[in-house]
Design a protein around this nucleic acid. Structure first.
Lengths: 183, 183
DNA sequence: GTCTATAACGAGATAGAC
DNA sequence: GTCTATCTCGTTATAGAC
């Protein structure tokens, strides 16, 4: 992928994380990158194309981060705290989870974008279930309903980003894991 | 308040809950109500005025519902399950929490709208803390950090609405309470 | 690959008739 | 209170020069 296209994707991601799908424009992206809005159409014909590619890259980067956590952290609790860190980091910079933001706008998203967002949540759910199941197997955790627990962890992190940024507090989301998985 | 203004508020609320602040227009509202978009400006001069009033009415209606739950439900768990029902009901109709949706768009909201949204979350947090505290006092619940637990409950319900609607499942959110407050 | 220029459209908002 | 008509602006998108 050309470097310019990468710069456009990066600017688009940042804008969606702060302003949402309906709240950002090609002009915003162009101003960020330092080109004209018409030039963006050369790389991404439509807004749907651009946002689909932003979401796809975000999803893949996130999947890679999940692999890194599994590889470097050994206990379930360590892994989940590192996972919460993936949400705290953008929040610190005033950004939402890209897919959380897009999911809230599901009703106005082009179908190809919604498909990427859905895939993101399926992958998060699967990683959380796998991580929780490993913790249960080793006896580190007890959980009567692993899928439901994974859903609640994911929902609480996504919700905490929105509420915390709105109220301007609590950029460290490790308390979410601490409350849902008490020692 | 004139009946027409009430109809406009109701249509505006529904549109924001599904499409977000940036995703709905005066024309959408006008089409829903059956008038021209110009007529809306007679009741609400600007979009900020309309959305501020929508948020204020939503916040007050919600506060009234909280009072009703406290008055009719006796145990903390019953109250929290009824509270989750306040989120499940709009989700069933494909709508988000109005203030959750607006909070995700905090960066592009007019200041007067953001103020109403903030107030909403302060009120939710206070009611949840009060309800949890009552449960701790009677010995029904144990909680080492009531404010953090209240934050997580609120965040999980808001997040679950977004993820559930995006993925088209789980409109009953009582599992959130069940997972966060295990028996 | 990026530009200028512009088309085509929808947005928020206003003026003034009724 | 609602209308028609219009203004002004920002939006996505395209055409064609460089």
């Amino acid at each position: 992928m050309p470097q310019r296209a990468q710069e456009i994707l990066r600017a688009g991601q940042q804008l969606i994380q702060t302003r949402g799908y309906a709240g950002f424009s090609f002009r915003d992206v162009a101003a960020e990158v330092g080109i004209r809005s018409a030039s963006i159409h050369y790389h991404f014909p439509t807004k749907a194309d651009l946002v689909r590619d932003v979401a796809r890259q975000y999803r893949r980067d996130f999947a890679q981060a999940l692999g890194g956590i599994t590889a470097t952290q050994t206990t379930a609790r360590e892994r989940l705290l590192a996972y919460a860190g993936l949400y705290s980091a953008p929040l610190e910079a005033g950004r939402h989870c890209l897919c959380g933001m897009l999911a809230s706008e599901a009703a106005i998203l082009p179908a190809e974008v919604r498909a990427e967002v859905d895939r993101f949540f399926v992958e998060q759910q699967a990683w959380l279930e796998h991580t929780l199941h490993a913790g249960v197997t080793t006896g580190e955790l007890t959980a009567s309903d692993v899928p439901a627990l994974a859903s609640v962890l994911l929902a609480a992190l996504e919700g905490a980003m929105i509420i915390s940024r709105s109220r301007g507090e609590d950029t460290d989301l490790s308390y979410v894991v601490a409350q849902i998985l008490p020692t």
